[in-house]
Each structure stands twice: as structure tokens, then as C-alpha cells.
Design a protein around this nucleic acid. Structure first.
Length: 562
RNA sequence: CGGGGCGUGGCUCAGCCCGGUUAGAGCGCCUGGUUCGGGACCAGGAGGUCGGAGGUUCGAAUCCUCUCGCCCCGACCA
């Protein structure tokens, strides 16, 4: 491709609405342009990278027996009603105004619909079906360029099996394919145990890239490799102590004391002597959730303990249920289910609210005074706590989710009646898995991990072109002749060459554009070197330059790009 | 949906607080010329209903009200 004819609008200055490096560089290098919040157009250069990534994905999905589909993004709403996901997605799903259609945010329903009609016998399985297609989600707040958009490209795959054991096999195949995909893309990633959330299912893992631009928080142990989304992460942390002697229960006047910090200061006690109370409403029933000190309730963990419709109690409800406002609520005298975090197990001499405004209760013995309590892991892991595997200190940081694999089970097949007959002619719901990769996120994450102050640094695998050929002064005939010949020869040899043949751009201008676009190999043709039958070869990654004899050039290029 | 910021030529921004010729700069673009290995120079030129609507005023980019859009933080998130 000749740059003089290409539409690659580079930007010298940083666009005003981009903040993170990948977004800035994708705009500056002319890969994408924004159309509206969270909606991006891929320009030719950016789309070339999309094609590189999707080709790698296709190869690896095909390698595990995947078959590529192309499903419609426009779906009849009623099919989504069958699984209750119109309500589950709520405002996140786009609805078409003038017909009863929705824009698909994912495709479990549609794939299951097709499986239902065709996969009828145990002999028809396993199946792995995938597609690379645009998804639509009405994100309340798109951000970070293409990392979180309202429309995005996703590789989504679905497996259909006859048993949980066979699902294990399909799941592991995807795990393997995903590792190969992200390895080939040159990403530094790690895998975390994750929550299945509204997707349903028994087990899921996320492929993550560490990044401040990320929206997930991950606990990670450098020592043993333990990694988990904080939604599900566990840690080793001391519980509240139980001493030999339980004090008498006593009511204490604590005027205007609301927070745990205030209580500690007021009474001169430690955080770990306090039990914090939160009221949740689960399926219309109030539940008191007790946490030690300032530990925060992890609502993802709570949701697994309290299945069904779950929400925090409203302030006016609190008063009605407990007789007190938030800050003075406690377990003693609370009528209803009480659950507590494991750190509180069997502790005594605790302080908590008295269910009466401006009063707390001291001397609480969990065994004696809260006999109906049930204990669960309900807290969110904090930086520096012990790893449950090796007791090293956990790191907690932000990460971007690149891919997610789920063991779905029968949620969709049961809801939609996708059954198969086993050897004995008995009907069972198909056991499903679902597996996603955010294609644009692969690109953004790659750039987040591979850039410098001058621009993007592409590896040959994802680079939109492998060679950036610069004809420095394209008004001199010898430069024109030599660079045109190199361009034609390398193209004929099968390389993708971007040829800066512009006559009106100065050398410095071309160098800067070349570094910004970041193609791995630059070949610089200038009249001085040409007099000695030489050109310069520069590696973008290291900045290393060397002059090469013209008759050695193609061997050198082959060497560098093999 | 709460909080904050911002909308002025294609891009980055100044001007607004304190209303007053014809709305500016740099970059980019067009024409001609000189340059030509790290974002050149000279000369000339095109391009803007100052996001939109309403209001105050003799007069509004500037003050007031409403509204739309974009970015950031939070909430939400498969």
C-alpha cells in the first residue's frame, strides 16, 4: 500500500477526549475514529489489525473442532423472553422501536434455538459452534476508547455436550485455545477464577490483562500464581479472637456514633472488636449481614449465599425492620435470619448496634447471644492478606477482561427445551458451555503493553503491515527508482509493505509517522546511502539501525520477519 | 443515574470572569517558490450561524434559563 493513496489520517496532537495510551494511539495512528459515545469506526489500518486478530482466533477455534457461524444481531424479542433475559438484561439490552426486535448483547439463546432443532441425539455431540460478530450493549458509561463500547466485536463460542464430564472436555479445549490465541497475540495475561454472574452456570474463568484502565479488580499471588477476581477471591486473614471469659452483655449510650471508626474512637476499642451490620432484602425477607470491623460486604459472594432477588435495604425499611437507623443496627434482638462473615465465627466480647438509635451493645458472645447465626465467606479480599494456597502476600490490582469461559450447564437448554435422547431413548437437556473473547480488547490490551513515547510497537503477528518503506526524498529519481523496486519486490515476495512515497512530506515527518504507526521493520531509502548501494534498516522495537547492501536487503528482511 | 469538566475553522487551544470594531493563534488544507535524514521556510489564499433553543440588553462567543453532545470519577456491568 502506498501511503500517498492510503487513508491513514495520523494525528500530531493528542485528541482531547482520549485518556489512556491505547485510545490515544489508536486515534493518532488513524486506526479508529469515534462516531458517538462508545461507538467506533475502524479505519483501514485498524481494520487490518482486526483481521489479523480474528484470523488467529479462527485458526485456534478451528483447531479445537469449532465451526464458524454468522448469526443475526437483530433478534425477535420473544426468543429472549423464553429464558427471562429481557428482564435480566434490562436497560442494557437495546430494543428496536418500530418492531418487536432487540439487538443481541450475546447469543446463547440463538445458538440454543438452532441446537434445539438439530442436535437431537447423543450421537450429534459434542459440538462447538462459534462466530465473530458485533454485539450491542447499552452501556450506561462507555469508557477507555474501544475497551468498553456500546457496540463491539466478540468471538463467542458455545459447546453442546451430553454430560458434565464431556463439558469438562469442551471447557478445557477452550482454555487451551484461548491460551494459544493470547500467546500468539503477544499478550501478557493471567487467568482468574470468576463469578458467573447473570450468565448462570457452575464455573467460569476470566483471561485478564493487568491494567489501570481495567474495570475488574483481581487478587494475585506472585509466589504461587493464585489469581481470582475479588468478587470470588479468598484470603487468609485473622478472625476476631475468642477469649476465655465472655463479659456480660451491656447497653452503652453512644450519642451520634454511626460508623465503626467513630465507635472505636468513642469507646477506645479496636476495629476487630466490632461487628458491623447491614440489612439486605432477599426475596422480600430481611437478612442481617454481620461483618467484622470495616470489612465490606462482597455482594457477589452474598448473592451465592442468598440466591434470588437481593438488594440492600432502604433507609426507611431499616427503621421499620430493626427499630433503628443504619449505624445502630445489631444482631442482638434481631428477628430474622442472621448471617455473618467467617471472621466473626464464635467470637466474643464484641460491640455492635443495639437496634435503638444512639445505643450500642457490648459484650456480645456470638455463641451465647446470636445462636441462630450462620457463617459464610462474605468479605472482599484486601491487598497484603495471605494467599490461601501458600500464605504469601496477595496483590490486588485492576485488570481488563479479555475473555471469559463459562460452564453454563442446562440453564438455556432447559428454558428453551433443547433436549437430546440418550442411548436408552431418554430425553435430557443439552449441557452447554459459553466462551467469549473481546476482539477490540485484544488490540487495545496489546497496545497498552506495547508502546513507547513515539508510538505503537507492533510485533509482526498483529502488525497491519510488516514493513514500513520510507522513500525520503521522492523527488530524486534514484530514490524513486530504488524504493519502487524494493516495494514491488517485497510485495511480490509476499510481505505486506506500507510505502511512504509521499512527495510532499519531509524526512522528519515520515520518520515520526513511521514510529507512530510502529510497523516492526522500517526500510529507509535515502540518496546518500543509495550512492553506496545501501539502505538503512531500523527495528521499531529496539530502535536499532543498520545499513544494508541492496543485494542483502531481502535476506535481511526475511531474517527479521521469520 | 449522582458528582466534576468541556463544547469556538479539519486538529489542539486562546478569548468568556469584567458584554462593545470585521472572532484570534499554532498545526493542517489550497496556490507559487525555496528546502529535503527526525514533525522546514517565504509569499499569497480558503475555511467558523462560537453545540442548539429561548431570554436579558441599544449591543451576547461572553450574562441568565432550558436543552443536546462529549470526556472523567462514582453507581451499574454478562
Amino acid at each position: 500500500m502506498k501511503l500517498s493513496k492510503a487513508f491513514i489520517p495520523t494525528l500530531k496532537e493528542v485528541p482531547n477526549d482520549a485518556v489512556i495510551p491505547s485510545h490515544i494511539l489508536m486515534l493518532r495512528s488513524g486506526m479508529v475514529r469515534s462516531l458517538s459515545a462508545g461507538i467506533y469506526s475502524f479505519l483501514p489500518l485498524g481494520y487490518k489489525v482486526v483481521k489479523k486478530v480474528t484470523e488467529i482466533i479462527r485458526q485456534e477455534m478451528d483447531a479445537i473442532g469449532g465451526q464458524e457461524f454468522h448469526l443475526p444481531a437483530l433478534n425477535p424479542r420473544e426468543i429472549w423472553e423464553e429464558t427471562g433475559r429481557v428482564e435480566a438484561f434490562g436497560d442494557t439490552m437495546f430494543h428496536v422501536k418500530n418492531r418487536d426486535y432487540v439487538l443481541a448483547p450475546t447469543h446463547e439463546e440463538i445458538m440454543t434455538y438452532h441446537a434445539k432443532g438439530v442436535v437431537k441425539s447423543y450421537k450429534d455431540m459434542p459440538q462447538i459452534w462459534y462466530q465473530i460478530q458485533t454485539k450491542f450493549r447499552n452501556e450506561p458509561r462507555p469508557k477507555s476508547g474501544i475497551i468498553r463500547g456500546r457496540q463491539f466485536l466478540m468471538k463467542d463460542a458455545y459447546s453442546f455436550d451430553t454430560s458434565w464430564e464431556n463439558l469438562d472436555t469442551s471447557y478445557k479445549l477452550h482454555d487451551k485455545a484461548y491460551r494459544r490465541i493470547f500467546d500468539r497475540c503477544g499478550l501478557k495475561y493471567f487467568i482468574v477464577g470468576a463469578s458467573s454472574g447473570a450468565m448462570g452456570g457452575s464455573r467460569s474463568e476470566e483471561f485478564m490483562v493487568k491494567s489501570d484502565a481495567g474495570e475488574d479488580t483481581v487478587a494475585y499471588c506472585e509466589h504461587c500464581g493464585y489469581a481470582a477476581n475479588v468478587e470470588v477471591a479468598k484470603s487468609v486473614v485473622d478472625g476476631a479472637p475468642r477469649t476465655d471469659k465472655s463479659e456480660e452483655i451491656k447497653e452503652i449510650s453512644t450519642p451520634n456514633v454511626k460508623s465503626i471508626d467513630e465507635l472505636c474512637q468513642f469507646l477506645g476499642i479496636k476495629e476487630t472488636q466490632c461487628a458491623k451490620s447491614r440489612i439486605y432484602i432477599c426475596e422480600d425477607e430481611p437478612v442481617l449481614v454481620l461483618m467484622l470491623g470495616n470489612d465490606e460486604v462482597n455482594e457477589t459472594k452474598l448473592a451465592t449465599v442468598l440466591p434470588g432477588n437481593l438488594r440492600p435495604g432502604h433507609p426507611d425499611e431499616l427503621k421499620q425492620i430493626t427499630g433503628a437507623d443504619a449505624g445502630s443496627i445489631g444482631p442482638v434482638g434481631f428477628k430474622g435470619r442472621i448471617i455473618a462473615d467467617l471472621r466473626l465465627k464464635d467470637a466474643n466480647n464484641l460491640y455492635s448496634g443495639a437496634n435503638k438509635n444512639d445505643y450500642h451493645i457490648g459484650g456480645i458472645d456470638m455463641q451465647r447471644d446470636v445462636p441462630t447465626v450462620e457463617y459464610f465467606d462474605l468479605r472482599t479480599v484486601q491487598e497484603g492478606e495471605g494467599c490461601t494456597r501458600c500464605n504469601s502476600k496477595l496483590e490486588v490490582f485492576k485488570a481488563i477482561e479479555l475473555g471469559h469461559i463459562f460452564k453454563l450447564g442446562t440453564k438455556y437448554s432447559e428454558a428453551m427445551g433443547a433436549n437430546y435422547l440418550d442411548e436408552s431413548g431418554k430425553a435430557h437437556p443439552i449441557i452447554m458451555g459459553s466462551y467469549g473473547i473481546g476482539v477490540e480488547r485484544v488490540i487495545a490490551c496489546y497496545i497498552e503493553q506495547h508502546y513507547d513515547e513515539r508510538g505503537i510497537v507492533w510485533d509482526k503477528t498483529l502488525a497491519p503491515f510488516q514493513v514500513h518503506l520510507l522513500g525520503l526524498n521522492m523527488k530524486k529519481q534514484e530514490v524513486i527508482d530504488a524504493s519502487e523496486k524494493i516495494y514491488n519486490d517485497l510485495t511480490a515476495l509476499g510481505y505486506e509493505v506500507l510505502f511512504d512515497d509521499r512527495t510532499d512530506a519531509q524526512a522528519g515527518f515520515k520518520f515520526n509517522d513511521a514510529d507512530l504507526l510502529g510497523l516492526p521493520v522500517q526500510i529507509i531509502v535515502g540518496d546518500k546511502n543509495l550512492k553506496e548501494n545501501k539502505v538503512e534498516v531500523k527495528l521499531r522495537k529496539t530502535g536499532e539501525r543498520s545499513t544494508v547492501e541492496l543485494n542483502e536487503l531481502y535476506n535481511r528482511v526475511k531474517e527479521l520477519l521469520s
